[in-house]
Design a protein around this nucleic acid. Structure first.
Lengths: 239, 239, 239, 239
DNA sequence: AATGAATGAGTATTCATTCAT
DNA sequence: TATGAATGAATACTCATTCAT
């Protein structure tokens, strides 16, 4: 008890300094989170900058301390959330050993767990809505998400076909057909879902499972050997 | 008949009156067309009322003569285009005779021809983008499009299952899985497509065909265990 | 009195149409006038766009209907008022016949009557205040006012020297020395004058007259012939 | 003196304390300097407080530690620099012995050396620009600079006239005519000059010399008899 | 019916000023 | 003292909407 006050004082000083610093470092993240919520919910134009700030618990001015404009905030939201997704799910699949149908199933489930189920999935709706107003972002999305994602799936399909597990199918088209229900799921979640409680609420896991089953039945090369199966139709190539 | 000039005059007067009337009646339609284009391209908020008027060839004031507000114009655009879609494709399928896989194929192809390929398909993007800002429209969309559309598909599936042509599958989930690639197609067309020329351009007919093939393989109830596999499924013919 | 109502009606319709049109055409001028007043009085930054509109008797929005931004309004004010001045006083002096001192006196008096005494003279203060914020305008001022104005004076001096009426003096420097009191006059009028009522109010005409007299005494080549007058000092040329 | 280390330590402590103190005391001066530069260059409104602080090498907060507001900073800048100017050149002229033309020449050259050539000359531009926004400063300027300055010049003229060296001229008007080219010089330096490099750059010394020569020729009472000179016009007195 | 000049509520953005550290 | 993160009043500018013609 000799010098507790001093200790306490310096402790609290440290603590509050820490708190302040932590807040400062956390600010951009908090703002991006708030902005993601609002942009996804209401769209870019209908979201007021002050609202974003308010939801992040700061004032209007603070927002512009971290992002020079609403547009830059929007871009940051997209980049931040996309970057996270893409980088995480990168190489993992290449080291997979086992049958290709299990691999594909794994891919679908992981996609849901890592992206579809998270707030970040709202980005898909954002991009679709604002692609023509932010072409720059659309290109970014294409390069950072669509392209790597389709490349991943393409390798899965090629692996399956090479190993004789999948029928030969037109790769690119099939990739899109595999992704479509995933996109559908997140769009439903962020657009019509909230308005259609009354109607069939989609159960993501069951939906994914059923997608996988239907898909794998469609893909599997379990035709009796010797049966001259329809040869792989030529992939439509863009000229 | 005595004075041909008079007749001619009245004729031309009639004609121009007609023309003017037709124009007058056409006005709202021209405005709705222009508005659909712009709303789809840029979204609701980013579309300026004056632009819509200009594209329709009238002045700003005239727009508000026909529609009391930009919101009402938007709703009218959605309603008009949705109504068109739904009413046309109603009963036709019920009178279909023939195998269910052909029926399903027919459904998919018709959907593309009658909706996906038209300007109206942009409505899907609009609804997805603005659902939370126009819940009323989302409900309208659910009731007028989603519900009847899924009901239609549901009947097709039930027919196929009842006739032993399709495996028993969870109906609602499968309906969504059938619709998802269709939605994907129109969203691609109206959002990322225009920005991604360089990347894989999707060929709608081939895409639909491949969707049908994959889907029908997944649905068909002909996999007798141990039985050497299904006879070659009918090659999807693109018209 | 047979159809007075019709006549009256068409007259009033015409009149109001006219009034409207006249107003529309007058708007930019009214706005420029209001803006000149306020910019001169308070400076560019301290003048609020809405104030300008209010003084011109219109609403904020209307201002931006005619000028795309406050900066452009400012530029228009400068250009409009400068252009007027310069073009008016152009060639007149060249056709002058008579002694050069009378010519110079005429120049000074005209300058006051046509520029110094008008609202437009406030532009000088504006330019001086905002030159570094609107370099573009400073250049415009240099090219459209300073350069032609000094050229005019230069010709007057050269004429006087050539005719033996003026001593040979360094032209450019002297031109600036002639202009300086004129500038001083308008700056006084628009800056300190209003604050210094108590102090000596400058009487423009007397001031100009005294400037002319002092100047002409300094310039006149009436030194007794044979008196070795100071030779014309070399004009400092910028390298 | 026993422990040099202690001495050294305390010396260095003292020194650094001194240095810090000097710095502390210098702060306001550094801020005033920075502010003068920026205010002169860009005007009051276009100068950001943070910029001033940055140029002075301190943080935004520190600025407001020394000056309660931007307006007060501005006033301090003006007061500080004006005070400097006026007090220095006070009595010196009264003790001058010699001809009045030499005295006047001395005045002009000193004015340039002590004021025109220094940063403080930018104050003139500031006052002219902001007189109506800071009437208090305009009055201050009038009382502290214009009035004493003109009084000084007035005495010079009166001396010359009294000694028969200058013609009798209207004093106040002539005072303004003497000052005008000086003001012109500093305004040119701080406004148009920087934008008009290409155009005639004014050489201050030559300009002042020429001003003096022209002026003295105009003032000197050595007109050859026979010239029907105008008698001194009555000075216009403002009541 | 059609026009387009005018309006003014609404919003992004800036920046002097404060205050916890 | 000194800092710089945070604030919010102030202001330029937009655009749906009105209305006199």
């Amino acid at each position: 008890m000799s010098a507790p006050s001093t200790t306490a004082a310096s402790e609290s000083a440290e603590a509050s300094a820490h708190r302040r610093e932590r807040r400062k470092e956390a600010r951009p993240g908090e703002l991006l989170d708030a902005a993601l919520d609002l942009f996804v919910e209401k769209g870019f134009a209908a979201t007021r900058a002050e609202e974003v700030a308010a939801r992040a618990g700061v004032s209007k001015g603070t927002l512009f301390l971290y992002f020079p404009s609403k547009e830059e905030l929007f871009k940051a939201v997209v980049r931040e959330n996309l970057a996270r997704v893409v980088h995480e799910s990168a190489g993992e699949l290449d080291s997979f050993e086992g049958p290709s149908d299990a691999l594909l199933l794994h891919f679908l489930q992981q996609w849901w767990a890592r992206y579809g189920a998270t707030k970040a999935s709202g980005i898909s709706k954002l991009i679709i809505s604002e692609a023509s107003n932010f072409p720059e972002l659309a290109v970014f999305f294409r390069d950072e998400v669509v392209e790597p994602g389709t490349a991943l799936l393409r390798r899965v399909l090629e692996r399956g076909i090479a190993r004789g597990e999948f029928r030969p199918v037109p790769i690119d088209t099939t990739v899109h057909l595999i992704l479509a229900p995933l996109l559908f799921l997140v769009l439903w979640k962020h657009s019509l879902g909230p308005c259609c409680d009354a109607l069939a609420r989609i159960e993501p896991e069951a939906y994914i499972a059923q997608h996988a089953e239907l898909l794998l039945r469609g893909l599997r090369a379990d035709a009796a050997p010797g049966t001259p199966d329809s040869p792989a139709p030529p992939e439509p190539k863009t000229p």
